[in-house]
Amino acid sequence: MKWSEIMIHTANEAVDPISNILYEAGAGGIVIEDSNELLKEHEDKFGEIYELDPDDFPEEGVIIKAYLPVNSFLGETVEEIKQSITNLTTFDIDIGPNKVTISEVHEEEWATAWKKYYNPVKISEKFTIVPTWENYHPVSSDELIIELDPGMAFGTGTHPTTVMCIQALERTVKPGDKVIDVGTGSGVLSIAAALLGAKEVTAFDLDEVAVHSARLNVKLNKVQDRVRVSQNDLLRGVDGQADVVVSNILAEIIVKITEDAANVVKPGGFFITSGIIKQKKELVKDALMTAQFTIEETLVMEDWVAFIAKRR
């Protein structure tokens, strides 16, 4: 099969929404080349491999490469992608240079290209994210392993917004808790909650492709007895209450669901929010406080913010 590579030069803030746009357009894989990676000090004591070539990265900003099958609808699909990215500015999202280029590649090239960027990564006190093809041995008896295959998932679980969510789950989830994951994507947060002892986890996503991917990852990590993945529009129509609700989505959408979250989270329970660029920190904080939440902890990683909010 022939594939077309669409390459988008954008800003860090736009990586998550653009990635989602590309997957919804039918992308068969995504590679993210972030110039910030060259500035980080990486350790390899957990088995990571960081031998980065500066030629693989842009001088500034982020390059997102996605792969679309070459067919009669390709031109129309690309135009829809461009328009959707441009529309992100209506949400006050910085899309950077927004330079889009197209080229043709062979399937073998993109099918393995991203693997050099994805190795076992310890992301918190307890959790290590491991690609399915790696033979990884835990370094401690209480280490929790989440296996992911980015070939079928939305992300590798190592983005700052996801890492902060998992760290927040460690601080809040207790054995026997009920957890709701809003906008589950790859399902990694639901898997983490189950491994932390939650007895019942409900994962929602509006995108049927994400629902399918999350179900595969849930089964891969053998937590399907505790995690139920369903297609749903955020918290719309959700009955009952949860001890913890976690949502790693755009700040503007978090603001819209704070009242719904207040109705779902038990008094004394927690609402974990991430996906918040620093410029939107106060916007989300104000919405949470208005909706009967108290900010218990603020997590910051790179340009991103996450809140652990407690229901009053």
Rank of each mutant, 00 (worst) to 15 (best):
I129V: 07
H9L: 15
I257H: 03
V130G: 04
P138G: 06
G240L: 08
S186G: 05
I81E: 03
T273G: 06
L235T: 02
L195I: 07
E24M: 11
S274L: 01
V31F: 06
L68R: 02
T202G: 07
S4L: 14
K82R: 14
M1R: 08
D149E: 10
E76N: 15
G237D: 13
E109Y: 08
P58F: 08
V305D: 07
F271V: 03
V15E: 11
V238G: 03
V31I: 11
S141F: 13
I146T: 02
D303R: 05
I272W: 03
S274P: 06
D44R: 13
T294D: 09
N232Q: 11
V305Q: 00
L144N: 01
T184F: 02
D149C: 07
V163G: 05
V227Y: 09
S140N: 15
I145V: 12
M1L: 14
G268P: 11
F307Q: 04
G197V: 06
L52A: 05
T298K: 08
N71A: 11
E259A: 14
A25F: 07
A168R: 13
L196R: 02
K178L: 10
E143H: 11
A251C: 12
L196G: 01
E79G: 14
A306M: 08
P160H: 12
N221Q: 11
E43T: 15
A210F: 06
L206A: 09
E282L: 05
D205M: 10
T132Y: 13
G75N: 12
I146K: 05
P267Y: 09
D181I: 00
D205Y: 07
Q231K: 12
A198D: 04
E37N: 14
I85E: 00
V227C: 13
P17E: 11
K122R: 14
G183W: 04
L220Y: 01
T273L: 08
K122A: 03
A27N: 08
L189S: 04
T184K: 00
A113V: 05
F307D: 03
A291I: 02
R215E: 15
V188W: 00
E109A: 08
K310G: 00
A309K: 03
S190E: 04
A242E: 01
Q241H: 12
I308N: 03
T10E: 09
G237L: 12
G26W: 04
V182C: 10
A111C: 05
K280Q: 12
E107C: 13
K2F: 11
Q241P: 01
R171D: 13
T290M: 13
P138T: 10
E80V: 07
E297H: 12
S140A: 11
K2I: 08
N36I: 11
T298I: 06
V229I: 04
I254S: 01
H42N: 13
I30L: 11
I32L: 12
I81R: 00
I102Q: 08
D149R: 01
L189G: 10
L235E: 01
H9D: 13
T184H: 02
